[in-house]
């Protein structure tokens, strides 16, 4: 009897995953058909690998100053040259990827999480709940996002943590609106009505039926926004409102090289190129994911 129960559970486990695998195969097929998505994926994968293995790739300590070697042009010794404190720019760009990833991941989790929850509750309950939550969202949306992020960062004091909080507070509204729209659509579907006919509680309906449907548009939007998050973080860093020196944050590094741009172009250029490539990679990947999840293309 015990054996039987176990084998049934095992079968349930294996069989439940088969359709998921089929789904992945289909996604992989669509992925292979789009060159730009593939390029985007490679860029982002490379970016992640570089971030993980930064200590092994970077030849120098990113914050170690060596004033005897300041402002050296790119050479075989210092691939991207050195800055005004003699720090190796190549190592700083490599380590900068870690900062960027940290920002992206934390901002996505915080803003995606808050946004989805707010949106789902607003959309599902409607009425007063919806009015209150959405008017708060509108208040956030009324300001240009960079200005708002600057205001938050300035008010809380410049630091990496505060940058992350500031950007999250700006971007959750996007996901809230998306999740609300999806929740509004889903809550009127017959399968939700069937759920209510069974006597399921609102809690159960929201978390096990409405929420899963709202997550995929939010996820697509999150990947599409990752480029913007980097740009915003770099912008804050550039203005001195983000990560503080000597943290190798790309935006701050571009800012560092401002005064030397004419004669020592490499200080600003290489972190700038890094920002451009990663933002482009995220945008290509985001577009690709949106297309792959488009139900019209999936059948």
């Amino acid at each position: 009897m015990k054996q039987d129960t176990l084998s049934m559970k095992w079968k349930n486990f294996v069989e439940s995953r088969k359709p998921l695998i089929d789904d992945w195969k289909h996604t992989a097929y669509l992925w292979r058909k789009s060159k730009l998505t593939m390029i985007g994926t490679f860029v982002i994968v490379a970016f992640i690998i570089i971030a993980i293995f930064a200590p092994f790739i970077a030849p120098y300590d990113p914050i170690a100053q060596d004033l005897s070697k300041r402002l050296q042009p790119p050479s075989s010794e210092h691939l991207f040259g050195t800055d005004q404190f003699g720090r190796d720019i190549f190592s700083r760009v490599i380590y900068g990827s870690r900062i960027a990833i940290q920002i992206i991941v934390l901002v996505s989790i915080i803003s995606g999480g808050i946004g989805t929850l707010v949106g789902v509750f607003a959309g599902y309950f409607g009425g007063v709940v919806d009015e209150v939550l959405m008017r708060i969202t509108d208040m956030f949306l009324a300001f240009p996002s960079l200005v708002l992020a600057m205001a938050f960062a300035a008010a809380m004091g410049p630091s990496l943590t505060n940058t992350i909080i500031a950007i999250s507070l700006v971007y959750w509204t996007v996901y809230a609106r998306l999740a609300r729209a999806e929740a509004l659509r889903v809550k009127n579907m017959e399968y939700i009505e069937a759920e209510r006919a069974m006597g399921a509680s609102n809690f159960r309906i929201i978390f096990s039926h409405v929420l899963p449907m709202c997550i995929s548009p939010v996820l697509v939007q999150l990947t599409l926004r990752m480029g913007t998050i980097i740009l915003t973080a770099a912008g804050l860093g550039f203005l001195g409102l983000g990560a503080q020196p000597p943290t190798p944050e790309w935006g701050a590094m571009v800012s560092d090289g401002r005064n030397y741009l004419v004669d020592q172009w490499w200080i600003s250029t290489f972190p700038g190129i890094a920002i451009a490539i990663v933002v482009l990679g995220f945008n290509l990947l985001g577009d690709g994911i949106r297309d792959m999840l488009d139900p019209r293309l999936r059948r």
Partner: peptide, 9 residues
């Protein structure tokens, strides 16, 4: 087509 949850087994 609309009365069954599309993401559930």
């Amino acid at each position: 087509y609309t009365s069954l949850h599309p993401r559930k087994l």
